[in-house]
């Protein structure tokens, strides 16, 4: 049962990340990876809400471990940073890393606080 919840969450989170990135790319012709940035920050907020609200462990597995875990990504984040740095966009790479960490932490702290207030 637990594995099925993780599978279900992961099978929704990952394609949602892919589709979001595709839509964002089609609208913004930018070298800054806005798509990954958007899903990572959104995932931090949702996981923060879940952590603050402390729902039952099954919902935590489905939405936390499965959905938020697969919606957000560290591998694409680091690879995009490397690509920016290799493409002589070192400042943009540094800005991407800083913005992701600062906004991600901000979203996580806000989410936990909001979730606790629910």
């Amino acid at each position: 049962m637990n594995w099925l919840l993780v599978i279900a969450g992961g099978a929704v989170g990952a394609p949602l990340r892919y589709l979001t990135d595709r839509v964002v790319r089609s609208r913004h012709d930018s070298t800054f990876p806005w798509g990954t940035f958007a899903v990572n920050i959104t995932g931090c907020l949702v996981l923060g809400l879940l952590t603050g609200a402390a729902p039952d462990p099954h919902l935590q597995l489905l939405l936390g471990t499965g959905f938020c875990g697969a919606l957000t990504t560290y591998s694409t984040f680091s690879h995009e940073t490397l690509r920016l740095a290799e493409g002589k966009a070192g400042l943009l790479a540094a800005a991407y890393v800083t913005a992701s960490v600062v906004a991600g932490l901000g979203a996580a702290f806000t989410g936990v606080w909001l979730g606790g207030a629910l």
């Binding site: 990952a14 990340r17 995932g43 923060g48 697969a70 957000t72 560290y74 694409t76 991600g104 996580a108």
Partner: peptide, 27 residues
Amino acid sequence: RPFFGTGVLGGFTTFSTYTVDIQKLVE
């Protein structure tokens, strides 16, 4: 590439657990 790069590796790694774990440690 979509299966392994976007799917498997993207699903394996996580940014949300990273930031929320930092929040928990601070709290």
